[in-house]
Design a protein around this nucleic acid. Sequence first.
DNA 1: AGCCAGGACAAGT
DNA 2: ACTTGTCATGGC
Length: 294
Amino acid sequence: MADESSNSFIFKDTEGLNLLETLDCGQCFRWHMDENGNWKGIIGKSCINLNLSCGVLYTDGGESREQLEDYFDFNLNYTAIKEALNEYPTLKNAISYSSGIRILKQDFFETLITFILSQNNNIPRIKGLVEALCHNFGEQIGDNLYAFPDDVTLAGSTEEEIAKIKCGFRARYIIDAARKVNQGIVNPVIAAALPLEEAENYLSQIVGVGKKVADCTLLFGLHRLDAYPVDVWIKRAQKNFFPNGLPLELTPIAGIAQQFLFNYIRTAPETEYIRIAEKELKKAEKERKKAVTL
DNA sequence: AGCCAGGACAAGT
DNA sequence: ACTTGTCATGGC
């Protein structure tokens, strides 16, 4: 992979990109690291290999240089964004914990369906469900490799067929999403252009899509950096660090701040005391309720 | 064994 | 406008 052949590309200025932090921070679910620290994943119908050493990203298998440049959003100046976020102590800590996170520019439909699958689920299981969906409904693009299914395929399936992947109550949500996208009732171009709150409501036409899933779709699938998904982890972070919400100045890039915060509160050693404290609190609450009923 | 998970939704205060 | 129960499944 020394020089750029037909589908191998080199990105020399990766601005502090860290593949583990970016590909395993809960924004995407189809990338896998091997024992050497290299990554393999699927973008569109391409299986892509990634190797990052000494700040240089070597890619193999992509369609074009522009495809990867776009996917990793290399034209956005992350140094400047992180400087703005660093003005706030908690965000500064979160960024120094995992400074190599970038918000990927993923496919709209894939992101929409993936985050429908994400609801009330943990990340390992989301990965399994997405993989099962691709395996059962996606086009085979290689040896045991499947693209994410398109809206036509999913819209043409039944709820029972979708439920085969064991996604439970989410099966009918997927059908509804696929049909509304397929019929043009939900159009990514329109969603991308609407003001945030209207865009959230627009996507919430889909049964099973509320504010959280809408925000994830807007942020990860349409690169709306003002979208700020609030899940159980972000609620925890807010309770402890931003009881009055994020600073208003950060509104245009709240989504990026959110992703640093999410990874920080969920996995950083220095926030473990918060996770433990909440567990203890919950346990005590349960004991209290038990005592009342006796 | 039981709690929880990148929630949404309906029904109840 | 806020709480609560329910939904299907399996990771830990």
